[in-house]
């Protein structure tokens, strides 16, 4: 730009501009690469740290024993692992059917303004903070019953599963080619029959992927469980008692002042993260070659 004060080559004005543009090009593109590697570096650092720290403090006791009384070393989180399983089971029974059927409706039946409204509200529901879902489950179940329960925790997680279940089933059903539907209807099948026997089987892998990713997401949710399933240092019997859950245990143990609890928090973090990432990798790479999914 201000290269005219260079007395040497007559083409120096052009050269300087050229040089400047090349430099900006190089610097900015390098910066974008650096951004990418910083983001990746953070990921690898998190995984590495957790795996080294978590795996080294993991023992068999973690999976088989109950938590010990405060201040006593040792013990495990067997009840929290079972508790998380129970919560996820309730959540799945609640969230998947509603979400899946809603997805079928959007993909196969709906059109126009009502479908737009449902999609929009589903997306909004998806964006509602998980802690608000916790309050919702609290007002619906805990408040009338006057005690915390597995059921309330499951309800909170189940409601959180619905929006993703809707959008992922819709997406995978839509990916089934129109020819298949037309073919089966040309053979005399009713629309419902075509959906049940042709479209859904064709979209099966995708739908299962969606459910697995969905479960992996709510499995790590802590906030909605704090005042619904609450926590429990012993086994939780049936569905109407408070229960421990793995993510809540991580939180409780991490903020507690005991060294041994911190160690166990790392173990629990390691187990939880391994599970979540394994499901993610498996579902995305093996079950479906569609790597990016609706959120």
């Amino acid at each position: 730009m201000t290269a005219s004060n260079s007395p040497h080559a007559p083409a120096s004005h052009f050269d300087f501009l050229h040089f400047r543009r090349k430099t900006v090009n190089f610097v900015m593109l390098s910066l974008t690469a650096i951004c990418t590697f910083v983001a990746l570096g953070v990921l690898l650092y998190i995984l590495g740290y957790l795996f080294v720290h978590g795996a080294s403090s993991l023992s068999l006791d973690f999976f088989t024993k109950l938590p010990t009384p405060v201040g006593e070393a040792g013990g495990g989180m067997a009840n929290a692992i079972v508790g998380s399983g129970k919560l996820l089971l309730i959540a799945m029974c609640l969230g998947v059917p509603i979400g899946f059927l809603g997805g079928v409706y959007l993909a196969e039946f709906a059109g126009g303004k009502f479908a737009f409204l449902i999609r929009y509200v589903t997306d909004l529901l998806n964006g509602v903070p998980s802690i608000v879902m916790g309050i919702f489950a609290y007002t619906i179940i805990v408040l009338p019953q006057k005690h915390f329960s597995t059921l309330a925790g499951g309800l909170a997680l189940g409601v959180m599963m619905i929006p993703i279940a809707v959008r992922s089933s819709e997406e995978f059903l839509r990916a089934v080619p129109l020819n298949l539907r037309e073919g089966s209807m040309a053979l005399g099948a009713s629309k419902t029959r075509a959906i049940l026997t042709v479209v859904i089987p064709a979209a099966k892998n995708g739908i299962i992927t969606g459910v697995m990713l969905n479960l992996a997401r709510v499995a790590g949710e802590t906030a909605p469980l704090l005042f619904t399933s609450f926590g429990n240092r012993y086994w939780s019997h049936g569905w109407n008692e408070p229960t421990a859950a793995l993510p809540v245990m991580i939180f409780t143990y991490a903020i507690a002042p005991y060294e041994d609890w911190h160690r166990q928090a790392w173990s629990a973090g390691f187990v939880l993260l391994s599970l979540v990432l394994a499901i993610n990798v498996f579902a995305r790479l093996v079950l479906s070659n569609k790597k990016h999914v609706a959120r």
């Binding site: 990921l43 790590g220 802590t222 991580i250 993260l273």
Partner: peptide, 11 residues
């Protein structure tokens, strides 16, 4: 990077 999005917030 999308795996990073799957890491639970408590972790």
């Amino acid at each position: 990077i999308e795996l990073l999005a799957a890491v639970p917030s408590v972790i």
